[in-house]
């Protein structure tokens, strides 16, 4: 009787532990295989996004040592002097819209790309979609007040404008440095 009681206590622990270890071993093996591929892909994707918002830029490096304003996530500088790329966010209809904004040394936008957003599918496409109506008006803009919102997607537009304003604020900060 005691023997069965003991085994009914020990067996579950042993079995669960062995299964957990076996699964962990499989995961470690697969991770070894896929981790380099994933890393290379992420770097390529980040590089491609940078080139999309600033086609002339090369050798991007992170700007460090600045106290970043609240809405600014990251500032990257083009090594060849083509300008800065700001990763900022603004509040849209469904949470924050995270945007990459490229600004050249004259203070004009070179390009924008929405990284993440939670806007309604379909309705927000003219604002957050790649190459959308809203974003086509942006290259060359030097003052966020010139940007026109898209009717039907006002909140999404305002979120984008807020993100772009944050980028200009950050630009002032970088230039003052």
């Amino acid at each position: 009787m005691t023997a069965t009681k003991k085994s009914s206590l020990v067996a579950p622990v042993v079995v669960l532990t062995v299964i957990a270890f076996a699964i962990a071993a499989i995961l470690a093996f697969v991770n070894d295989l896929t981790a380099p591929v994933i890393k290379a892909q992420e770097e390529a994707a980040a590089q491609a996004a940078l080139l999309e918002v600033m086609p002339d830029g090369t050798d991007f490096t992170d700007v460090t040592g600045l106290e970043l304003p609240e809405n600014v996530v990251k500032i990257q500088k083009a090594g060849n002097g083509a300008g800065y790329v700001f990763t900022t966010y603004g509040k849209g209809f469904g949470g924050n819209i995270q945007v990459m904004v490229g600004i050249d040394p004259e203070g004009a936008i070179t390009g924008t790309k929405v990284l993440t957003h939670g806007e309604s599918a379909g309705i927000s496409d003219p604002v957050v979609g790649d190459g959308s109506e809203f974003q086509q008006q942006l290259p060359g803009v030097t003052d966020p007040a010139q940007i026109e919102a898209v009717s039907g997607a006002t909140k999404s537009s305002n979120g984008m404008i807020a993100a772009i304003e944050a980028a200009f604020d950050a630009l002032a900060l970088v230039n003052a440095e």
Partner: peptide
């Protein structure tokens, strides 16, 4: 092999393991 008392944790570990494998493969 799996005792009745811990069958659900065992299933979850196995399932989570396979999901993570599939996730890493899809991501790569």
């Amino acid at each position: 092999v799996i005792p009745d008392t811990v069958r659900i944790p065992c299933y979850i570990v196995v399932i989570a393991g396979f999901v993570t494998v599939v996730q890493m493969l899809v991501q790569a």
